[in-house]
Every structure is written in structure tokens, then in C-alpha cells.
Amino acid sequence: MEPLRVLELYSGIGGMHQALRESCIPAQVVAAIDINTVANEVYKYNFPHTQLLAKTIEGITLEEFDRLSFNMILMSPPCQPFTRIGLQGDVTDPRTNSFLHILDILPRLQKLPKYILLENVKGFEVSSTRDLLIQTIGNCGFQYQEFLLSPTSLGIPNSRLRYFLIAKLQSVPFPFQAPGQVLMEFPQTESEHPQKHAIDAENKTEEKKIEEKKVEPNICSDSSTQCSGKEAILFKLETAGEIDRKRQQDSDLSVRMLRDFLEDDIDMNSYFLPPKSLLRYALLLDIVKPTSRRSTCFTKGYGRYLEGTGSVLQTTEDVQIENIYKSLTNLSQEEKITRLLMLQLRFFTPKEIANLLGFPPEFGFPEKTTVKQRYRLLGNSLNVHVVAQLIKILCE
């Protein structure tokens, strides 16, 4: 088989390139394109032999695209226009312009690529931009399938639900194609047991329902009191339902423990949460242990912001979180800090997050890349194992 000629758009730190390697499909990245200078430094550091174009996609002409003579596109367009916490500007957001340029150029290429893989945030599937994408590839003769997938379905203890589209230039549908449906599971392969697949799919659908259900925190001033006739939150701003969900995730033996992804010898002091932050955000932290089989999605603000940016790790495993939190009532600020410090909570290191995202041990950062920059770049990246699996399915 002739190696595929791959164009990597919005290449970032090279998650797509890494996934392509992991898929073992014979391929060569003919060009990677991104305007983020810090991301480009990291890309060059890890893929020194790949042509990296530091320019805007809108600035690339049809002739330039044609000259690259690619037969596969891997891309992860800016997600800000579609994210649930953003303004959801969709096609009106200027950050969508580069992607609209790709959709304009695609039908006019001298030779259409055979394969397309796109990654974005959950929310993209209900956007006008997505409708335009579907219309464009449909007119070009592509068969496609959409997915919402999380690394947990591959046994990785990290929730990172993302939208994916795979498309192939052919007249026959994919064997697993479900028109109009966004699949929540990887397609079944020959070797898989159909019954197991059905159970997994059911579990994932249930998981999605839980994830989408916005739970209002049931806040009481005293965690031992009764709130509006119902039992109060046991500790932290978590409902009994949320605590139960986390316990269920931790008992799912198909998912590995976090300790498999942790670094052995690090200077933990530089990653411990500052006492002031501990006090301020104590009730909002998502705390996991090395034996946990779950962690929340790490975002680009991790390490700087504490609310909703990713889990923190409790390094004293013999201390019970519940006992610490229940003992906080009526204590002075100093005493509260002393109690909370007993948990020895720390941030995950950039390397540990890279491990959870599926980057191999040899993947690294140039020395001058700061910790803050590393967190930011990883928060914008994708899960390598999930994409590698989809590339294999696409090229089968």
C-alpha cells in the first residue's frame, strides 16, 4: 500500500500526528499548519522532519493546497465557537473563518482527499458549521459517520467527551454507518462479542445522560443538617447522585487506575495547591487518588484556575476525605487550612496529563516551555488513543 499523504490542519502540539503513528497506517505528514508559535515549537521538537507551515489557513490558496497533493486530512478546528461555556458564536465567530475557508476550497481541489477525520468539542454536532460541513462533504461524494467519544471507553481514567467525524470518499456506506445518528461507542469489530458491545453501549448512553444532567449543588451551611426535607450533601458541594456516580466510576474494573499514569520521581512541592486556594476552593475541588479510575477533563486553565479545570490528586491515601471535610465546620481559617493540608493535594504534572492523553513516554517539551504553557497546550490537545483507533477504523 502506498503511504498516505496526510495534511494536518490546526496541528497544535501534534496529537493527530502522534495518533497517525500509533495507528500504524503507512503514512507521511506532508505538511502541518498552525499559527500558535509555542505549539509549533513543541511540534518541531517532536516531529523535526515534518514540514511545518506557521501561517493562517485562510492565507493558503487553492493552488498551494493542490501542490501538497494530499489524500487524507486530519484536523481539529478551534472549538471556542461551539463550547458550552463560550458564547457559541458558531459561524459568526471569526475563529470559524479558517474552517469555512477549508469547506470552500475542498470541492475545488484538483483531487479530493480519500479520507477526512475531524475532532471538536461536544456541541459542534448541533452547530450550523457542522451542517455546512455535512452538506459540503455530501456534495463531494463522501460517506461519513459522527461520534461522541470519551477515552474512558478505551479504559483510560479520564473523561474527555469529544465530537469526531470520519469521512471516506466512496459510494458504499461504512458497514457500521448509522445515518443521522451520533454514535457513543467505537464501531464493533469482528473480534468483539456482540453482547458485550450492547452492554457497553448501554452503559455509555447512561453515562452521557448523567454527564448532561446539570445537577444544582445542594448547598447547606452545615454539612450535617437536613436541607429542605432531603438529606444534605455529605461533604463538599456534591449531591448524593454525584458521589454515587464517582463511586461507580471508581469500581469499573475495565478502566485502569490513575497510578499507571503518574510520574515516579517529581518534586511534589512545586505542584501542591497553595493554602489560600485550598481554603477558597475546598468545596469545589474534584479530588482523586492514585487508586481512582476516573478524572475530569483537563482544560487549558489547569494549574492557574481551580474551578472546573481538572481533577487534583490526593497524595496521602490513608486520610479519609470525608473525615477532613466533615471536621471543617466551626473551625477558624487557620485550623481549616491545617486540616485541608493533611490531604496533601497536588496538581497533576503536565507529563501526567500527557500520559492520560495518550502521548508516548518519548514525547517531550522544549526546556524553555513553561509549566503554564504546557498545561495550556495540553488542555487544547486531544486524546491520541481515541484518534488512533478512529484512523484505523477509517482506513480499514
Rank of each mutant, 00 (worst) to 15 (best):
L258T: 06
T225Q: 14
L262P: 04
R160M: 07
S98N: 06
D200H: 12
R84K: 12
L331H: 09
Q181P: 01
M75D: 00
I102H: 03
I25N: 00
C220N: 10
I393T: 11
S127T: 04
Y302H: 03
G241P: 02
N158R: 08
S311K: 04
P107W: 06
K168L: 07
D90W: 07
F47W: 08
Y45C: 14
P179H: 03
A19W: 00
A178N: 14
I57F: 03
Q28L: 13
N383C: 15
P366G: 14
C297S: 12
I199T: 12
L169H: 13
N380V: 10
L253Q: 12
L100P: 02
D286H: 10
L313Y: 02
G364A: 03
S159R: 11
L378D: 01
Q249M: 15
F147H: 00
V91C: 10
F298C: 04
P274L: 13
Y281N: 13
K326D: 01
P366W: 06
N46R: 08
T50M: 03
E322T: 12
V38R: 14
L183V: 07
K111D: 09
L390P: 03
K326E: 05
N269Q: 11
A240G: 05
C220V: 11
I287D: 03
Q80E: 12
L377W: 01
I287A: 06
Q51N: 07
E307P: 02
L258V: 11
R376D: 13
L53S: 10
L234E: 10
T309N: 06
R376T: 09
L341F: 00
F261N: 13
I60P: 02
G303W: 01
D66H: 09
E190G: 03
G89D: 05
T316P: 01
T225M: 07
L234M: 07
N383I: 05
R67N: 10
S327E: 14
M72N: 00
I199V: 12
F124I: 01
Y10L: 12
S98A: 08
K168R: 13
I266K: 10
T96D: 07
T296I: 14
L356H: 04
L258A: 06
E41H: 10
F176V: 14
L87K: 15
F176S: 08
S292P: 02
L262I: 07
Q18Y: 07
F176L: 07
D318E: 14
L87P: 07
I134E: 10
Q344I: 04
V182M: 03
A240M: 15
F70N: 01
E192T: 07
E206S: 11
Q170R: 13
G123P: 02
S327G: 08
V384P: 00
R247H: 12
E119M: 03
T369F: 00
R280Y: 08
G308A: 10
L7S: 04
I102W: 10
G310K: 05
E307Q: 11
A282L: 08
F348L: 13
I324H: 05
L149V: 04
G364K: 01
L109Q: 02
P274G: 03
L394Q: 02
S228I: 06
S224G: 15
I287G: 04
F99C: 04
P275D: 04
Y325E: 05
A27C: 12
Q80P: 06
C395H: 03
Q249C: 09
I102Q: 02
N203E: 09
I102D: 01
